[in-house]
Write a protein that binds this DNA or RNA. Structure first.
Lengths: 147, 147
DNA sequence: ATTTTTGCAAATCATTTGCATATAT
DNA sequence: ATATATGCAAATGATTTGCAAAAAT
């Protein structure tokens, strides 16, 4: 989860201008540990009277996704969400209950992908692994049917 | 890729009525090897004068996805697509060029997921692995920059 | 006969776009 | 000064819904 400053620096580093709305976006995103949709971010910004326009939220998220600061996520419900992330490419476990998103290490995924490429004959250019479940905290809350 | 009959049998087996529109859906889906969006299926059905309504297409796809006859796919573009599949849970390699979708064997994914569960502390309930690239055919067509 | 399913058109929800204005460089 | 970025409101696209009519059991 990158800090607001890091996010802002990403805009800067890629040659985008540092504007008030972008600072606001950086602040909003840097403040969350969970995933969020464009609409949710917009709602939060309204709650704080940041005066961000809907289009700006979508446009900034697009840019940040391109820059790899934020990663697109497709929830099991079909909704499009985002999570902030530091590393350029990797994967997340997402808590179905509280929405927390945690990076997962690449424990052998690359080799798996290589194997799948070989066995399918495809040239694999990109892949996405999404994991959904309960985070340790929510899991503790659900004191039922399990260890 | 299940046959139209198999798809129809899935409706039946789950207690859904066998209607003309559902037969049409089964036929349309059984006839494709690639992925498709609801809208595309609707367009095809119109081309063949099958008289399917838009709502029916969406509703049937929902049911079939629940039954596991069809799997939801999120294309890199963000579009929601579907692929027909036989086995209840598994993954696909999707050709970015022609849209062909091929099942991939589970070469160690389960163990990987287990390892990730252990290292993250999450209880992982579901996961999705999506692979995008070029199928052998399209790859041959693209005689350039590669082995 | 009764219940499920359908098609339609309208409603809803998500995302994008045009354009005049405002802002960063 | 100049180019980029913004907000707005309208446009677009995708999906869902209400409901009376049609079809399956």
């Amino acid at each position: 989860v990158p800090s607001a400053e890091t996010i802002l620096a990403a805009f800067d580093g890629a040659g985008y201008r540092l504007t008030e709305p972008r600072r606001a976006m950086a602040g909003l995103i840097g403040a969350r540990a969970d995933h969020f949709t464009a609409e949710e971010l917009l709602a939060t910004s309204r709650g704080q009277r940041l005066g961000l326009g809907r289009a700006t939220v979508f446009r900034s998220l697009d840019i940040l996704a391109d820059l790899g600061v934020v990663e697109r996520l497709d929830l099991p419900t079909g909704a499009h969400a985002f999570v902030a992330c530091d590393r350029p490419h990797h994967h997340h476990v997402v808590c179905s209950s509280c929405g927390a998103a945690t990076d997962v290490p690449d424990q052998g995924l690359d080799e798996l992908v290589d194997r799948l490429a070989a066995s399918s004959g495809y040239r694999i250019d990109r892949h996405r692994l999404e994991l959904f479940g309960l985070c340790p905290t929510c899991r503790a809350g659900a004191l039922r049917d399990e260890d």
